[in-house]
Structures are given as C-alpha cells and as structure tokens.
C-alpha cells in the first residue's frame, strides 16, 4: 500500500462529466475566526467533528498565509511566522491543489474569508469567489434580520450559492 503517493501513483479522480458535482465544500469565516457558513455538496469522507474541522481549516489558512509571506522573495518587509498577515499585503495565496482536491481562498479587507474546495481540475476561481462575496453582500449583509458575526441562516443565500456553485466548471 502506498501512503505517500504522487500524482502518478494515485491519479486525480476523473473530471466529472455532469455539471453540479465539481464542488466539495465551502467555508466562510469572519475576521474573528467564527465559521459563519459551512456548505457541503460532496464529501464522502469525514474524520473530524464539525467544530474541529472548522478550526483545522482556519488554522491551515492562518499558517499558510504567514508561511507564504515569509517565503516571499520579492518583499523586504516580512512578518514573523505565526503572526497574522494583512489581507492583500505583500503576497497571499489564492489556491492550492493536491491530487484529489483544489482549495481556493479569498480574503476581503474586512477579514471575511471565503474557502471553496473543488475538484482538482477546476480552473482559476478568484472571480467566482468575488461573485460569491457579492452574493454574501446581497443576501446576508443586506438582510436586516441577520446579526453581523452570527452564523448565516439565510435560505436565499444558500439557494443562490448552491445554484452558482453548480455552474462552476
């Protein structure tokens, strides 16, 4: 059995032919690390409980962001490892790809983090995440019954998000 397989040994799953199952999960975190939204479309394997899973995801992004900035060969000003980075400052990563999935990431200057996990063969999703940010503004921020900082329970947002995510190629 091969535990540390390369792409040749365990090839990527085939590109789905029908549209609608390219996306696996979506996370939305606010600036305080609160998971505002977790949507799941296709996640056969679960190893952690929801809370630990969210914490792990947030920690991954937090560390990866500070690591990528630390590695930046073009910028003189760099932070210390483990210290939070400014959204958009210096460099920041927008996606990474493994042989089984692709994680796309966007952070707004207000600290909202959008994470979309899709099939590894999906293209650049930066514009898509921007569009989702706009959906968030229209259906969540403008919803007078939504309390800022609370988990999102807006049916309209979920519906339009599902619909949009299905259209992502």
């Amino acid at each position: 059995m091969q535990f540390f397989g390369s792409a040749e040994i365990s090839p990527s799953p085939p590109v789905p032919t029908t549209s609608g199952n390219n996306a696996h999960m979506m996370y939305v975190f606010n600036r305080n690390g609160v998971c505002l939204l977790y949507r799941e479309w296709n996640r056969p394997l679960r190893t952690l409980n929801a809370q630990q899973d969210h914490k792990l995801m947030f920690g991954l992004l937090f560390s990866l962001k500070s690591l990528t900035a630390k590695m930046d060969p073009t910028s003189a000003e760099r932070g210390n490892l483990g210290v939070p980075q400014l959204p958009g400052q210096g460099c920041s990563f927008h996606s990474f790809r493994t042989n089984t999935y692709k994680l796309s990431f966007m952070e707004s200057p207000s600290g909202l983090k959008l994470i979309l996990i899709t099939h590894p063969r999906t293209g650049d999703l930066r514009q898509s995440l921007k569009y989702i940010y706009n959906l968030y503004v229209e259906y969540v921020v403008k919803n007078p019954l939504y309390t800022p900082g609370a988990p999102i329970r807006c049916e309209l947002f979920n519906t339009s998000l599902d619909q949009y995510v299905r259209s992502i190629a």
Partner: peptide
Amino acid sequence: RLVDEFLA
C-alpha cells in the same frame, strides 16, 4: 455592514 458592500 456597509463596508462589505463597499469592498465588494
């Protein structure tokens, strides 16, 4: 709230 609309 407005800040998010502004940024978006």
